[in-house]
Amino acid sequence: MKRKRKDQRTKAKGLRAYVALVYAFLFAPIVVLVLFSFNDSRRNAAWQGFTTRWYGELINDGPVLDALANTMKIALVATVLATVMGALAAYALTRYRFRGSGLYNGAIYVPLVIPEIVFGVALLSGFNAAGVSLSLQTLIVAHVAFMISFVIVIVRARMSGFDRALEEAAMDLGANEFQTFLLVTLPFMAPGIIAGGLLAFVLSFDDFVITFFNSGVGNTTLPLKVYSMVKFGVTPEINAISVFMLTFSSLLLLLSWRIQRQSGKPVVTDEE
């Protein structure tokens, strides 16, 4: 018995070392980016000393700031649209059982499983066939199309823990259906809606592939700007933008998970 336990521990030691290496693999590139965003050298990978110069240059870089502004505009409007529509849909799908709900459930998963590039070129072709020229508005429309499903999945996860007796009680106490929704159901859904909205915002903020195909001329977003800069060569400014984007997204994600956890859902179920 004793020998077996010791045997287990040594086995787990090998596993632990392997897992540590896998985590190192996951984070080494990110650490490298952060490190070199502070490296006082334009050309190569040798360490030349600490500087915040590259971040300073970003703040004065007009095109980068324009791209950031576009990204924020798109993400804000698309998030509001996707969150409102997604929350309503999630409510309908969990609250009611009706004929055809299976079909709706299936439809929601299509944007999650379709290859992103196919989504991107299909939208481009669709806009083209409809004679719509590409603009910030078409980008917002495109972003909403891939964000809704994520919002629905997260709000639905929250709704699955809802006790319908609360609604019954509210109505027994004289509330009508709309008041019940507004005063009982909606407050319960709220953490799911906020968490889903934050996640949707991150997806829009970071989206490259769908934006790449549907941006047209002059609607550069931050990921598109990074892409075109990378095509010209590696610069410390790109590292600085990258670190900014990773930090910004991570903070929103952590906030989203925190809200979901506080509302009683373990972290694992949030992802899809």
Partner: peptide, 15 residues
């Protein structure tokens, strides 16, 4: 999983 795939790919160019 949720942060920018583009940037995570770019980081390998740096390396």
């Amino acid at each position: 999983f949720w942060t920018s795939y583009l940037i995570r790919t770019y980081s390998w160019i740096v390396i």
